[in-house]
């Protein structure tokens, strides 16, 4: 395994395979994928649609168990094939952050409440959660929209709130699935740079699935996926 930044592996996957269906309808979405990501490292997963990127990301995110293979997060084994070795919900709560193409903010909560709820779910007291949520929104430059509902925010602002939510519990791993697909190139780059900033300053590992080749210089490493297989790593230009 190639560790580009730091010594501790934030995530390590070994021989991950995901097969949907069986018999004539069997589809191999991911085949023998192995890699690791260090703390503070930002990694990109590239590849055409149907290459298996999202399958890999959701497997690491513990919401779509692999058919075979093992997943370690923070050095702890969490999945062995489709068998969970930890309480998945509790593990996600404490160690993982998610950002998607759509911000997926909870529609009936304001921007600050969307971040606050992530903290309260992790047993942070409401007042402290509110304070921390405001700090995160401020860090991401959307504090002035804290009381707005998602409908009243632009796509970029929504995505920043989603990033703030993903950061709320200081996860060791942030998983982002095409987070800039709905944004223009300028705002897309801002979000990518935000991930790098977060990784550098907070020590989280970040895995980003993207089609956007214009921001590849932001990443420490990029992998190309095709037909469910992971290609060789390319070292980025940002280090």
């Amino acid at each position: 395994m190639n560790h580009s930044t730091g010594d501790i592996r934030a995530v390590e996957v070994c021989n991950l395979t995901k097969i949907y269906g069986s018999g004539n309808t069997e589809v191999v979405a991911m085949k023998d994928v192995s890699f690791d990501v260090a703390k503070g490292e930002v990694m990109a997963l590239l590849g055409p649609s149907g290459a298996g990127k999202s399958t890999l990301l959701t497997a690491i995110g513990l919401i779509n168990p692999p058919t075979s293979g093992r997943i370690f997060i923070g050095g702890q084994p969490v999945m062995d094939s489709d068998r969970a070795l930890v309480n998945l919900a509790a593990f996600r709560r404490k160690h993982l952050g998610f950002v998607f193409q759509k911000a997926n903010l909870i529609a009936f909560l304001s921007a600050v409440q969307n971040v606050q709820i992530a903290l309260e779910i992790n047993d942070v007291a409401p007042r402290a959660a509110r304070k921390r949520a405001m700090e995160l929104l401020d860090y991401l430059g959307v504090a002035d929209r804290a009381k707005n509902l998602p409908d009243a925010l632009s796509g970029g602002q929504q995505q920043r709130v989603a990033v703030a939510r993903a950061l709320a519990n200081q996860p060791s791993l942030i998983l982002a699935d095409e987070p800039t697909a709905a944004l223009d190139s300028g705002r897309g780059r801002q979000v990518m740079e935000l991930f790098r900033k977060v990784a550098r300053e907070r020590g989280s590992a970040v895995i980003v699935v993207t089609h956007d080749h214009r921001s590849l210089d932001v990443f420490d490493r990029t992998y190309e996926m095709e037909d469910g297989r992971l290609g060789a790593a390319s070292i980025g230009h940002s280090a």
């Binding site: 709560r93 998610f98 709820i117 779910i121 939510r165």
Partner: peptide, 16 residues
């Protein structure tokens, strides 16, 4: 449904 899925993804307990 979508909001509940998001809450579950964030690790919300069943009681929440």
């Amino acid at each position: 449904t979508h909001d509940i899925a998001m809450l579950k993804l964030m690790g919300a307990r069943h009681r929440v």
